[in-house]
Simulated scan of single mutants.
Amino acid sequence: MSPDSTALAPGRRAAAAPSPPDGGHRSVVQGTSAQARDGATRAGLDAVATLALRAWP
């Protein structure tokens, strides 16, 4: 299979991964809390929040 055969057509988006039973929200909150406690940068935490909000249904 060539690399181009897996490319999405223009204007198409990849399907989202299945959501965990809680929608993943609890996992994101717990993960970012642990990262913040362990010294993550504000920019890093903001990036996580941005990605989580993009995945919000």
Results as ranks from 00 to 15, higher is better:
Thr41Gln: 06
Ser33Asp: 03
Ala40Ser: 13
Gly31Gln: 03
Gly23Pro: 06
Arg13Ser: 13
Gly24Thr: 09
Asp22Lys: 05
Gln30Glu: 03
Ser33Ala: 06
Arg42Val: 13
Arg26Val: 10
Gly24Ser: 08
Asp22Ser: 09
Gly23Ser: 08
Pro20Lys: 01
Pro20Leu: 14
Gln35Thr: 05
Pro20Phe: 08
Ala7Asn: 07
Ala9Cys: 09
Pro18Ile: 03
Ala17Thr: 08
Gly23Lys: 09
Gly31Phe: 01
Ser27Val: 06
Val29Ser: 01
Ala15Gln: 14
Ser27Pro: 02
Thr41Phe: 00
Ala15Val: 13
Arg26Trp: 01
Pro21Ser: 13
Ser27Cys: 02
Gly23Ile: 09
Leu8Gln: 12
Pro21Lys: 14
Thr41Pro: 02
Val28His: 04
Gln35Tyr: 08
Ala40Thr: 10
Leu8Gly: 10
Gln30Cys: 01
Ala9Gly: 11
His25Ser: 10
Gly39Asn: 11
Leu8Pro: 10
Pro18Arg: 13
Gly24Ile: 13
Pro21Met: 13
Ala14Ile: 08
Gly31Arg: 04
Ala15Phe: 08
Gly39Glu: 09
Ser33Leu: 03
Ser33Val: 03
Thr41Asp: 08
Ser27His: 08
Gly23Arg: 09
Ala14Tyr: 10
His25Lys: 04
Arg12Cys: 14
Gly11Leu: 13
Ala16Gln: 13
Asp38Arg: 12
Ser33Lys: 02
Ala34Phe: 02
Ser27Phe: 03
Ala40Arg: 07
Gly39Cys: 14
Gly31Asp: 02
Leu8Phe: 12
Ala9Arg: 15
Ala40Trp: 07
Arg13Tyr: 10
Asp38Leu: 15
Gly23Cys: 08
Ser33His: 04
Ala7Ile: 07
Ala9Val: 14
Pro21Ala: 14
Pro20Ser: 09
Arg42Pro: 02
Ala43Val: 06
Ser19Val: 07
Asp38Lys: 07
Gln30Met: 01
Gln35Phe: 11
Val29Trp: 02
Ser27Leu: 06
Gly31Thr: 05
Ala7Leu: 15
Gly11Val: 14
Ala17Met: 05
Ala17Cys: 05
Ala40Leu: 10
Gly39Met: 15
Thr41Ile: 02
Gly44Trp: 05
Ala7Phe: 06
Ser19Lys: 15
Ala7Met: 10
Ala34Lys: 11
Asp38Met: 09
Ala36Thr: 00
Val29Gly: 02
Ala40Pro: 09
Thr32Cys: 04
Ala14Met: 11
Thr32Asn: 02
Pro10Leu: 05
Ala36Asp: 00
Ala17Val: 05
Ala36Ser: 07
Arg13Gly: 05
Ala36Cys: 00
Ala34Gly: 00
Val29Asp: 01
Ala34Glu: 09
Gly23Ala: 08
Gly23Asp: 11
Gly44Glu: 11
Arg13Asp: 12
Ala16Lys: 15
Pro20Arg: 11
Pro20Thr: 12
Arg13Met: 13
Val28Arg: 04
Ala9Leu: 15
Ser19Pro: 03
Arg26Thr: 08
Gly11Ile: 14
Val28Glu: 01
Gly44Thr: 12
Arg13Phe: 11
Val29Tyr: 01
Gly39Leu: 13
Ser19Phe: 11
Gly44Asp: 09
Ser19Cys: 05
Asp22Phe: 10
Arg37His: 07
His25Phe: 08
Pro21Ile: 15
Ala14Pro: 06
Thr41Ser: 13
Arg37Ser: 09
Gly11Ala: 15
Gln35Arg: 15
Thr32Gly: 02
Ala40Lys: 06
Gly23Gln: 09
Gly44Phe: 07
Gly11Asp: 11
Arg12Lys: 15
Ala36Phe: 00
Asp22Trp: 12
Gly44Tyr: 12
Arg37Cys: 03
